[in-house]
Write a protein that binds this DNA or RNA. Structure first.
Lengths: 252, 252
DNA sequence: CGTGGAATTGACTAAGGTCAAAGTTAGTGG
DNA sequence: CCACTAACTTTGACCTTAGTCAATTCCACG
């Protein structure tokens, strides 16, 4: 949690971006690609548990997650923590909250993450010269909002069991959509029960008992620091949720 | 709640927009104003309780609230309702959720609302020709996100008393910032306790008891269908919250 | 072997939900 | 002007869910 970031020397060109060509993402026009390439400053690697963004600090960079898992959160003065959303490859980090002033939330890596760094300053050039990318940026912000809406509904109105079912189905769905659950890796959500608790607004103990209920009926398997979803359909039934169909999505 | 919208014949030019010139909002350059004027289709009036947007429906318009109060919400199949955020003058409605496909939440008027109508289709032209307005749009989406982050923290991690204090301080603050609490009107948040309950994720009964506690120590007065905040400072203390300082904000 | 983070479990407590009824108030129509 | 209604608010009694406390167990790792 207090580990520092580790900047890597990598300077992979956008043409070789690991996200490019994944079936979930839209293609770029050549001129868009050229601009994004110039927009990109460097790549960054953050170890699991490392702090990427700290609430209250100025943060002149934006990031796009290229690999790994992270999460955004806020804490109250006495330490109560609320996880706001999870970050998966393709997600833009730093757009939430004010566009230019200090950060209103923190971001921490759940696994080792690789990120692409952009300078906030250059957003102006993006808006001025690349309307289609500007549109994408708004689209991305809008998508984040709709996820937050869902979470709010969940925490506000669902029972503990429904919330847990919703969260795990949601993350499993996103992982699949993003293409990080390939055939060769185990399909595990890299969470501790503390993360689940802090996302659902529940205590750790109650979260544990709730997850146990879901395990017992065979909907998931809890591993050492992770969760394997065994039956997303039935989780969705319990939650009374249906993921919104999503076409090709942009990323920057 | 099932009343229909009432389109008014008004076609007030943007130069006479009631928001323009209010101290909270930024000024437009002449060419921006000209574009927004052409962007604007008409004005709309919705009576209190009227449905402006219904979840699941296609909605080719965007709105900017000019006057009155509204709220966005989602419901579960069995009727449990979660209010996501409130809409005040200057807020853009319809950007949340997917930019172009069906609406993912509903919007209802809390008081009589007047709105400015834009065609979603013309967003493309806005992005292409008015980078500064495109930037504003992203800024607005980003601001909505940061409000949702706050709400999530509140519902997930604050006690009933803290949540109520937070919500009322939040709304009172926004009302003041937006300039709708002028000297000649009573400074009343136009809510029922059911709205408060559905925002805080609490039952109506418990909400009532919680609000009573806040009244008894003199922090607010509950009126027939509304709330008068008497001591925002102490509400903020209870909530452990501090509104983020906000400079001039854009609107479209 | 130890050690520390994570997961589990049981006993008890408290916050908040549910049910049911009654009181208030604004508005409506006679 | 007044009775009537419907929507809101208020209150008390009781129940359920979830939180707290305190151990214990289970691993992964050095």
């Amino acid at each position: 949690m207090v580990q520092t970031k580790i900047a890597s020397a990598t300077r992979r060109p956008c043409e070789l971006c690991p996200l490019r060509g994944r079936s979930a993402f839209r293609d770029f026009a050549p001129e868009e690609l050229a601009f994004v390439s110039s927009f990109k400053q460097a790549e960054l690697t953050v170890e699991a548990g490392g702090a990427l963004i700290v609430e209250g600090e100025q943060h002149p960079q934006l990031y796009t997650a290229l690999g790994g898992w992270g999460f955004r959160y806020k804490i109250l003065e006495d330490g109560r923590r609320q996880i706001l959303n999870y970050i998966l490859p393709g997600d833009l980090i730093g757009l939430q909250g004010n566009l230019m002033s200090e950060m209103l939330h923190s971001v921490e890596a759940l696994t080792r993450m690789t990120l692409c760094i952009f300078e906030r300053e250059r957003l102006t050039a993006l808006f001025r010269n690349h309307p289609s990318l500007a549109y994408d940026l708004t689209w991305i912000a809008s998508r984040e909002e709709s996820m937050l809406d869902e979470h709010l509904l969940s925490i506000g109105r669902r029972t503990a069991l429904e919330r847990a079912a919703y969260l795990l189905a949601f993350l499993d769905h996103r992982a699949h959509m993003t293409g990080i659950f390939t055939a060769d890796v185990p399909h595990v959500l890299p969470l501790t029960q503390q993360h689940v608790a802090d996302t659902l607004g529940l205590s750790l103990v109650h979260t544990n008992k709730t997850l146990k209920r879901l395990s017992e009926i065979g909907l998931l398997r809890w591993l050492d620091r992770g969760c394997e979803v065994l039956d997303r359909g039935r989780l969705l039934d319990i939650a009374g949720w249906q993921p919104a169909p999503e076409g090709l999505r942009p990323f920057i």
